[in-house]
Design a protein around this nucleic acid. Structure first.
Length: 473
RNA sequence: CGGGAUGUGGCUCAAUUUGGUAGAGCACUUGGUUUGGGACCAAGUGGUUGCAGGUUCAAAUCCUGUCAUCCCGACCA
């Protein structure tokens, strides 16, 4: 393992971010632009995310399926908004072997098309509804500017696609899945995201409306972390997904889709990590504890083994670093990898009848008696770390959430420290564009909360919504 | 897609200005000594200088093109 230097976060945030990705061996660049190799450390985090979310989806009645990677052009074209929204960033397959294809295929940027076409042929009656499907897969969007995990041409995600008998049921599903994402970000990733509805301008191409989960990064930039869309009958009408209703009429289904991506790994870095490297919340860390023996004393090693075994038997994933590196190297390595808790055991500890814990998030050292209930102690400490990480992120989010009553307020805030800016909005897209002239501010989401002044922050006319504005990653 | 920067063993960089045998540190391998914050000694391995052309007796160095990465804008998860 290389002991690579990490650019300080406050010196160059973007450089720091990629340094952490590389130093923690989460991913590396490949010969293919915008397509990263997700390395074992990075993929393990994704597998944890998959495991937790997949279980939740299944508890809520969803089943997993797999649709084709390729989408025929004629099918894609059926929903005009979708085509328009994704046209600039789809990759096309035009040849099969050495022959030109009659009809080209796009490599899926998202799978509404294939799901819709599938649904069309697989339901006939209200008795077939709802269908609650999810797919774990890779998708491709031909981005120009790329960045590991945050914006790559190929990325991994899950996309849920559901169809329902009634509007109410579909809207409930849209909200329910946003609640799942919210729970996942808050309780698992320790990221205090905010949720709300996207404006017309920012919603998913082809959706009636989009719910979004927006997270605030350490540097005050916002990241769309997951979305849940309500399609109404737009796709079902475009793709002819009809069924026979309870009163023997023909109707179109109501549809939703919702997704989240490997981008969340990037969010973990930008919210929690520091100049020493990755910091992972215990609830998502693939390995929660590293045990580092100091010296090669037999008794030291046997204590390491004993503790390791007890933790693993109690479902606390731990491991012993038995490489021939010096202890100092191992400490630094555990830190760059973001392992939440470190246990050091050496002769000195044994002589004093103690073991030493070190928290990754605070670097705090905690001395405990050797005979404690190790699994209880560790699991409590991991919970504390998780909670503290959330609280720190929450505090930072609140500190970087501002209220603006006038456009001057907005400018003043943006000139000092970007963050979430709450401001009333009249609903006019022109005012949205005016905001964009200020350091590229975009509406992140519309909140349900009470408006600040009742007047649009841009034009001063009567406001309709309270909007959170931010700089988009 | 515009503006800027960079590309030399796995990593960080030197040699480019003024063309003349590719070099250092780290990492890696082997042996030994070590072990409480990135250990030490010794001996080794590894590079047709991003790629493709061109100029030249001679190219890492000059010219043209291209690709990639990073930063700043426009577009997006």
């Amino acid at each position: 393992m290389a002991n690579m230097k990490i650019t300080p976060r406050d010196v160059d945030f973007a450089k720091w971010y990629t340094d952490v990705v590389m130093a923690a061996h989460l991913a590396s660049y490949t010969e293919v632009k915008g397509c990263i190799a997700i390395e074992p450390n990075g993929y393990a985090i994704w597998e944890e995310m998959q495991k937790i979310l997949d279980q939740k989806f299944k508890e809520l009645g969803h089943v997993n399926v797999q649709m084709p990677l390729l989408i025929p052009e004629n099918l894609l074209k059926k929903e005009a908004d979708l085509v328009e929204g994704f046209a600039p960033e789809v990759a096309w397959v035009t040849m099969g072997g050495n022959k030109n294809l009659e009809e080209r295929f796009c490599i899926r940027p998202t799978s509404e098309t294939m799901f819709s076409d599938y649904f069309k042929n697989h339901i006939t009656s209200y008795k077939d509804l709802p269908l609650l499907y999810n797919q774990w897969c890779n998708v491709m969007r031909w981005e120009k500017e790329t960045r590991p995990f945050l914006r790559s041409r190929e990325f991994l995600w899950q996309e849920g696609h559901t169809i329902h008998e009634t509007k109410e049921e579909a809207e409930e599903e849209t909200k329910r899945m946003m609640d799942v994402y919210k729970w996942f970000h808050h309780d698992i990733l320790a990221i205090p995201s905010i949720t709300g509805r996207k404006t017309e301008k920012e919603k998913f191409a082809g959706a009636d409306y989009t719910l979004t989960n927006e997270a605030l990064m350490y540097n005050g930039v916002s990241l769309q972390a997951s979305t849940s869309h309500f399609f109404g009958q737009r796709f079902s009408k475009a793709y002819d997904i009809k069924y026979t209703t309870r009163d023997n009429k023909q109707d179109y289904v109501y549809q939703t889709s919702w997704g989240t991506t490997t981008r969340m790994i990037g969010a973990l870095i930008m919210v929690h990590s520091d100049d020493k490297g990755l910091v992972l919340p215990p609830n998502i860390a693939p390995r929660k504890v590293v045990i580092i023996p100091i010296g090669k004393d037999e008794e030291v090693l046997s204590w390491c083994e004993k503790i390791n075994q007890e933790l693993n038997e109690n479902n606390i994933k731990s491991f012993i670093d038995q490489t021939d590196k010096s202890p100092g190297f191992k400490f630094a390595e555990a830190e760059v990898l973001g392992i939440p808790l470190r246990i050091e055991i050496g002769k000195r500890d044994l002589d004093n009848n103690q073991i030493t814990f070190t928290r990754r998030d605070t670097s705090e050292k905690i001395i405990k008696k050797l005979e404690i209930d190790i699994k209880k102690e560790v699991s409590e400490l991991l919970n504390t770390i998780q909670q503290d990480m959330y609280n720190r992120a929450l505090k930072r989010r609140d500190e970087l959430t501002f209220e603006a009553k006038t456009i001057e307020d907005v400018k003043k805030i943006m000139n000092t420290q970007p963050g979430f800016i709450k401001a009333d909005w009249c609903g006019n897209p022109e005012c949205e564009l005016k905001m964009k002239e200020i350091n590229g501010l975009k509406s992140r989401c519309i909140l349900e909360d009470k408006m600040l002044t009742g007047k649009c922050v841009v034009c001063g006319r009567e406001a309709k919504e309270l909007v959170v504005w931010g700089i988009q990653y």
